[in-house]
Amino acid sequence: MNTKTKIAGIGLFLGLATLLLVAVSPLHLQALNPGPMTPGHEALSCTSCHTEAPGTARQQIQANLAYLTGFRKAPVAFGYETPDSNDCSACHARPDDAHPLHRFAEPRFVEAVRVVRATTCLGCHREHQGTRVSSNTEFCAACHDDLVVKNDPVDIPHRILVAEERWSTCLGCHDYHGNRAREAQKRLADAFDVQTIRSYLSDGPDPYGEARRHPAKGERP
């Protein structure tokens, strides 16, 4: 065996050993974390959202090789499942969400969901980005462009705000999921300004206040 082959063999051995150590270590999920958590999720463990994929690592490798070689119809998750809205709902499901996901599966919203991907939590809330919301502040226009409020309680009526397309003002009074224990402002002058809202949607302070109608569960039950 020449020196080159020896070095390659040792390198291969060390690489495989490192991979094996990472795979069996409880720290491997942290090592694989692709980015900062959404504000409020910092204290969660990885397995709060990522459930273990069925089967052993050997079965998963076997199944994926079978899939790649055409002996299986579908691949399987390796290690952990990719979270979806059901995983979010395990902690955040509420009976009175102002914008529940299932409503956007309705045919009338076919155009709207091309603009706002509200049929899944992940359409607006991307994890490991370090932000609360990844969409802009004007998405309300996708559904509420024909808004009519009789006996409008706001000093500048909604019909004027809609006609003037002042969509960045919506979140100044209304929190999207309606989970804050508060009343919406009645004067537009009291609305949170767009910079405050943008900052909050990113990772800034919460202008709506901390009190929630339905607090999220701290960990997957």
């Binding site: 050997r58 079965q59 076997q62 199944a63 299986r72 579908a74 399987v76």
Partner: peptide, 12 residues
Amino acid sequence: LFVTAPPPLPET
């Protein structure tokens, strides 16, 4: 992976 492996995972 194939000879001594446990039974294959069922299809979803």
